[in-house]
Structures are given as C-alpha cells and as structure tokens.
C-alpha cells in the first residue's frame, strides 16, 4: 500500500470491433455472424414490408368492392357508358390495374435487391 501505484494501461477489449473488417460482408453472411444476420434480416424485412403493402392495397380494393356494393346498393346498377358499374370494374378495369400494380412491385423489389447488393459489396 505504499509508494506510487503501478500505472496500468487501460484499453477496451473491443479494439477489433472498432476497426473495419478486412473481409467482405458476404463472409459475415456466410459465417452467420451477428452482423451478417442483421443484414439478412433487414433484406427480408424490406422485401416483406413491400409485399405486405401490395397485399394490403389489394385486400382493400378486392375486399372493399363487395362491401361497397352491399352498403351502397345504388352502385350495383349504376351505368357507366351503358354498362353496369360492377361489370366495368370486375370485367375490365381491374385487370390493367393488376398489371400496373405488379409492374410497380417488380421495379421496387429489384431496386431493394440492388441496394442490398451494393451495400454488401461496397466494403
């Protein structure tokens, strides 16, 4: 208890974590490290949210139409250019709407994948 206490060097045990890893992120994914898992989960979550969004819109349109016809009976027989409204929608307009929705989805899904690939390969 006498004399000057010995000086010790205090260092963080996590010095390695602060440095950038020299290996690419794909190896983190291959070795299923914490980091690799975080990246994978973020990709799956992004794509799932996109899919869920499209499905929700679809459910609102498709699920809402019968309800609309039930609650507003006037719509059932309403004529549009001589054709009843339900026919205009269900036998016509809904098909191009599907295609447009699908096209927008494909564009966004591919963009998400490109972003993920850029992120993983940048290092």
């Amino acid at each position: 208890m006498t004399g000057k206490p010995r000086r010790v060097v205090v260092t963080s045990p996590r010095t390695a974590a602060a440095r950038r890893p020299r290996h690419p992120l794909t190896r983190e994914i291959d070795e299923q490290t914490r980091l690799g898992e975080v990246y994978m989960r973020s990709l799956v979550r992004t794509q799932f949210r996109l899919g869920l969004f499209v499905c929700t819109v679809l459910a609102c349109v498709v699920g809402g139409l019968p309800l609309l016809f039930l609650l507003v009976p006037e719509l059932r027989g309403m004529l549009l250019l001589g054709v009843p409204l339900p026919w205009v929608v269900l036998a016509g307009l809904i098909y191009p709407a599907f295609v447009v929705g699908a096209w927008l989805y494909v564009r966004q899904a591919e963009r998400n994948e490109r972003d993920f690939a850029d992120l993983v390969e940048r290092r």
Binding site: G51, C55, V62, P86, W87, L90, F98, A102
Partner: peptide, 24 residues
C-alpha cells in the same frame, strides 16, 4: 350473373399475390 365475375378476377389476381409473396 355478376357475382361470378370474381372467379376470373381471382384466378388472375392470384398471380399478383404469388408474385409479391412467393415467386422469386
């Protein structure tokens, strides 16, 4: 009548669900 218009709509729209949830 008109209720059956849902049948072809569903048989097409099923591919939209398949596309976003399953295809790739």
């Amino acid at each position: 009548g008109a209720d059956m218009l849902w049948l072809p709509v569903g048989w097409t729209g099923g591919y939209l669900v398949l596309l976003v949830l399953v295809s790739a």
